[in-house]
Design a protein around this nucleic acid. Structure first.
Lengths: 156, 156
DNA sequence: CATGAAAGCGACCGACT
DNA sequence: AGTCGGTCGCTTTCATG
């Protein structure tokens, strides 16, 4: 994979293409072609180049967890005992489906996670039964997202 | 939009379809049809139903910010003066492209944000020049993501 | 809810500029 | 890098079980 260790050069047309597909991954290439004023084949070629560069990490359908009843998002700072191997804790976090992000972070917490639960009761269960059960977890600090106002990718 | 105020009922085939498209939004419907063993038209119908229910919030190309040189992700807890209208602060945060998430949260912070910067120097500029410049921001607490280990959607 | 058929496009590729 | 043209496959709709 090239382009990984240097800043990739992309031009305005590449940006147009990416912006379109970041908005709607299923937007037809030919539609984008008409918008930006070059042929579909050219867009196709550029997309191959962008994929090869590693810039395009894939495409996803985004589902709204609220519709499935998952209405409580929370962030949890996790304190780990010094003795414990952090990767081992992460491995166990991976097995908790409610955990949707996990970071090693600077600061007081060893690990910082984002979790998605149905409600506060469910959140409590996940914290007390699943997270606390992980070996090495000494303490957690939790705060709930009351409302997410911004959710986007980096500006192209 | 229906289904927004109750838990939506989806069956195993719906889940298969969604899991496939959550992995790769451009995966052909006919390919999924062959995998799950029903016709393309049936998948198509189910997708229309799922869209109407609001479960499918869209589709996105995912780009890797690292390839563009954005290698520092950080979380920032923001303290706001009581007097300030929070939506006004959010409005200004929206104009900072480096801010990719923003939540109202419980706990000590009024607002919690995720930001994506090229490096620590860039992060410092964003914090000191952009975030601190927002009216009502009294103090911030920042911690950096050293490595993101988990990034996924809710399990279907 | 499912199916198959049919129409209309779009993706993709090779040849060429 | 881009265009053009052709083929193949996909999406979408509709009438039907």
């Amino acid at each position: 994979m090239k382009g990984q260790n240097q800043t990739l050069k992309i031009d305005g047309i590449d940006k147009e293409i990416l912006r379109n597909l970041m908005e709607d991954a299923r937007r037809p290439i030919l539609e984008i072609a008409r918008k930006v004023g070059i042929s579909g084949a050219a867009i196709h070629q550029r997309l191959r180049k962008l994929e090869a560069s590693g810039l395009i990490a894939g495409s996803k359908f985004i589902i709204d967890p609220k519709v499935l009843g998952y209405k409580t998002m929370a962030f949890v700072g996790v304190y780990l005992d010094k003795a414990v191997s952090n990767p081992k804790a992460v491995k166990q976090l991976r097995d908790i489906p409610e955990v949707i992000e996990c970071h090693y972070t600077t600061g007081n917490w060893s690990i910082f996670i984002k979790i998605l639960c149905r409600d506060n009761e469910h959140l409590m269960v996940v914290l007390n039964k699943n997270i606390q059960a992980i070996e090495g977890v000494s303490r957690t600090e939790t705060f709930i997202s009351l409302d997410q106002q911004i959710d986007r990718q980096i500006k192209i």
